[in-house]
Design a protein around this nucleic acid. Structure first.
Length: 220
DNA sequence: GCGACAG
DNA sequence: ATCTTGTCGC
């Protein structure tokens, strides 16, 4: 089963949150995946109306058949506001609780957001990866920085830069459709991350993992 | 100071 | 993220 490492308490101010990110950043590892992952987890959060009520959903898929092997849902309330760069402090607590409820431990976490493609190189994917010590990757629908459009064909990509540093890739998963933004979360290399994303996108722009998690979250 | 800014 | 119908295209 998945165990969450108690590396820090959850801050309530932006300054504390930034301090946590800078303290955990050195723990990120980019070592390549030993072998192609057989299972992958999709994580997503749905917001329900007024306050900070949300639903964290996680699904575990067989990478070959794209069949859902396991899933978990957690209803919670966030107090941390949405601040670009501090996204994890809003969604990670509930997502971690959902991960702890899984009966099947996935080989890799596919997060809905950025990994190293983050202002302090510690996006949601890095945070979840380090706290669970599981391989993880970030697949964002939008980029935090500018990027050159990759070729029109599926599989083509361009380097994603931030502050002049390569932090990920803008990857085309569907011909002529807006690319997704892939970056390393923990214990994976960019090449393996993109290969996995392509396996998870035989039909749609977004990985099947995030699609199933998204649907589960909306269903409640 | 002003605008931009993962979900 | 979320509010939202029809419509254009494969």
């Amino acid at each position: 089963m998945i165990r969450v490492r108690d590396l820090h308490s959850w801050p309530s101010t932006e300054a504390e949150a930034i301090a946590v990110q800078e303290r955990l950043r050195p723990l990120v590892r980019q070592t390549g995946l030993d072998r192609a992952p057989a299972t992958a987890a999709g994580l997503d959060v749905a917001y329900v109306g007024d306050d900070g009520a949300l639903v964290a959903a996680v699904t575990v898929l067989d990478v070959t058949t794209l069949t859902v092997l396991d899933s978990a849902v957690v209803h919670a309330t966030t107090s941390f506001p949405y601040v670009p760069g501090l996204f994890a402090f809003r969604e990670a607590p509930a997502l971690l609780r959902a991960l702890e409820r899984l009966r099947v431990t996935p080989n890799v976490l596919v997060c809905d957001g950025q990994g190293l493609a983050h202002p302090r190189r510690f996006g949601l994917a890095c945070h979840l990866g380090v706290l669970t010590d599981l391989p993880s990757i970030g697949v964002g629908k939008n980029s935090l920085g500018p990027y050159d459009p990759p070729g029109r064909e599926r599989g083509e990509w361009t380097p994603l830069r931030l502050d002049g540093e390569v932090v990920g890739r803008a990857l085309r998963t569907r011909p002529g459709v807006k690319p997704v933004f892939v970056s390393v979360g923990h214990r994976v290399d960019v090449e393996s991350a993109c290969a996995l994303v392509l396996r998870l996108t035989p039909r749609y722009r977004l990985p099947e993992t995030t699609r199933t998690a998204d649907r589960l979250g909306r269903a409640g």
